[in-house]
């Protein structure tokens, strides 16, 4: 086993833009790899979330039952939970459906706007919860990185600070909607 701190990323209800922005740190990912092991992520192959991860970045809002159970599981197995990007921090665009009933949202998506197979799926697709909410409304979150998406520099800075045992001050580097 490596002695390096472990890092995970989780993708809930988001557009994957935050993960893309994370990848935009380009060659600096080598620096990061020297400091931490990426043990779980949509970007790697692991299927099971490890017993304990030091830092987990969450992209996306909690929208479905799957998201809900997943984030609670992840929190249990994570030392430092980081909300990455506006969807995780504010529920952002996913939350724009909150003003409408789940039923009418599904009808709009799968019936009114569908040309083929007009049917609301009940299998495979996880059931939507009544509202899409930010991660910290479900489990405690330790660090917030707002931005849509947060810039690669911001993500890199935040991670290196966290790995150095410091809470990153992001006031001047990012904001809601940035």
């Amino acid at each position: 086993m490596s002695e390096k701190p472990t890092l995970a990323t989780v993708w809930l209800d988001g557009c994957s833009g935050c993960h893309m922005s994370f990848l935009d740190i380009d060659e600096r990912i080598l620096d990061l790899a020297a400091q931490a092991d990426l043990v779980y992520s949509p970007l790697v192959d692991t299927k099971e979330f490890p017993e304990m991860v030091d830092i987990t970045l969450i992209e996306g809002a909690v929208s479905s039952e799957e998201d809900y159970h997943k984030i609670r599981m992840v929190r249990e197995h994570t030392r430092l939970l980081v909300s990455l990007g506006d969807c995780a921090v504010t529920a952002n665009v996913p939350a724009m459906r909150n003003r409408f009933a789940v039923r009418s949202v599904l009808e709009r998506a799968y019936i009114e706007n569908a040309d083929l197979n007009q049917d609301i799926p009940v299998q495979v697709i996880p059931a939507l919860r009544e509202t899409s909410i930010p991660v910290h409304q479900v489990v405690p979150v330790d660090v917030f990185i707002p931005g849509c998406p947060p810039a690669a520099d911001t993500i890199f800075f935040a991670l290196t600070e966290l790995l150095a045992g410091r809470k990153p001050d992001l006031r001047t580097t990012t904001r809601f909607g940035a």
């Binding site: 504010t90 939350a95 909410i133 409304q137 707002p146 992001l170 006031r171 001047t172």
Partner: peptide, 14 residues
Amino acid sequence: GKLGISHVGVPYLY
């Protein structure tokens, strides 16, 4: 940003 709001501490009312 200026006052350092990294997240909103109360639930949204929608």
